[in-house]
């Protein structure tokens, strides 16, 4: 005698754009009355997701009142049935790009840092897996960056600061003596940012980016504000400042500003160009005639870490000057009627 056994298909969860769908429940009509949906991780006492249950044949459809959220996991309970399902995030094509600063093709041997500017927030952690510094033969330089547990991101997750190991920059320190400097004058290098790096939405970068540069002599003296040239702005034309060398891209936007004669900051837009040697300031409101000041916080640095206050490397054998450090330096400029009439 043959006995036919019907194996019931196991209940399953699936998603449509607006609903969670439960198939193959043994008693779908009864399950419809007890069905509850929660956001994971579930905790006792947590309110169930509000929504409507619809029974279609033996299939249950649950439509949340306020929609399903991509990335969240929902737990579905009906009688003894318990299962969870995650709403996938929409897949978009890789589109995130990266810009590297300093932007110049000739960088000093004692370069202190690179900035990587992304046009979308990036995923944190393990950044050093995606960044390589290569020599002229394409060979990877061993541990060129100071690998910090706390990666140096700005709050938006769009800017990463990559510090070259200062121990391999400063003369007389052990890492430099034993391993040698990261960058050597006269040689060429490539900084490579791999497209394996994912942004905060878990999508890889649009493309691998390579910055090639040649290394020049170390920059050891501090920048000097009195050697900068200032244009004569007028009306809505910008104040254009030409530095005595390239300056740090991020700091030059934060630590250099314009005030009126009373010291009140003037609102406006800053742009840096020509490999960070030119700083332009366009006021939000047209200039009015009179006296203004370009003010620099003395923490402003060049790419080698030499600030307006002092060089990055200080010779300890020289006597330290006993004077109160100046925190601000300024240059006065005028917007005159003549400028407008020209």
């Amino acid at each position: 005698m043959w006995m036919v056994i019907f194996l019931a298909a196991a209940p399953t969860l699936s998603l449509s754009p607006e609903e969670i769908i439960v198939r193959n429940l043994p008693d779908a009509a009864a399950a419809a009355r007890t069905l509850r949906v929660y956001v994971e991780p579930y905790q006792v006492g947590q309110p169930a997701v509000l929504g409507q249950v619809r029974l279609q044949g033996k299939t249950l459809h649950f439509a949340p009142r306020f929609g399903l959220t991509p990335g969240l996991t929902y737990r579905v309970e009906a009688g003894t049935f318990r299962q969870s399902i995650t709403v996938p995030r929409p897949q978009r094509k890789p589109s995130t790009r990266v810009q590297i600063y300093p932007s110049g093709e000739r960088l000093p041997e004692n370069l202190l840092r690179f900035y990587l500017y992304f046009d979308a927030p990036m995923r944190r952690g393990e950044v050093y897996k995606h960044v390589r510094l290569l020599d002229e033969q394409g060979k990877e330089i061993d541990i060129p960056f100071l690998e910090l547990d706390e990666e140096l991101w700005d709050p938006s997750g769009r800017r990463l600061t990559l510090l070259i190991d200062p121990g391999r920059i400063k003369r007389g320190l052990k890492p430099r003596e034993e391993i040698g400097p990261v960058l050597e004058e006269g040689k060429s290098y490539t900084l490579e940012i791999a497209d394996s790096w994912h942004d905060a939405e878990d999508v890889p970068l649009k493309a691998t980016v390579r910055k090639r540069f040649k290394v020049t002599a170390a920059l050891t003296s501090p920048p000097q504000m009195n050697r900068w040239s200032l244009s004569s702005p007028s009306d809505r034309l910008p104040l254009v400042v030409t530095f005595d060398r390239p300056m740090d891209y991020a700091l030059a936007q934060r630590l250099l500003y314009v005030t009126n004669a009373r010291g009140e900051p003037i609102a406006g837009t800053i742009t840096l160009s020509q490999n960070e040697t030119v700083w332009s300031f366009t006021p939000t409101q047209p200039w009015t005639y009179g006296e203004y000041r370009l003010v620099a916080d003395t923490r402003l640095e060049d790419p080698a870490g030499n600030s307006l206050a002092r060089p990055f490397e200080v010779d300890r054998l020289r006597p330290i000057e006993k004077k109160i450090p100046v925190e601000k330096q300024s240059r006065t400029f005028w917007v005159t009627k003549k400028d407008k009439d020209q």
Partner: peptide, 28 residues
């Protein structure tokens, strides 16, 4: 902590705990 991850975590917590109460006619 204003990072994207911290923001996303708070959004997820809002979605988990806050929409599903009597008398809520709109949630975002």
């Amino acid at each position: 902590d204003r990072s994207p991850a911290a923001r996303a975590a708070l959004v997820a917590a809002c979605r988990k705990y806050l929409p599903n109460h009597e008398g809520v006619v709109f949630f975002a």
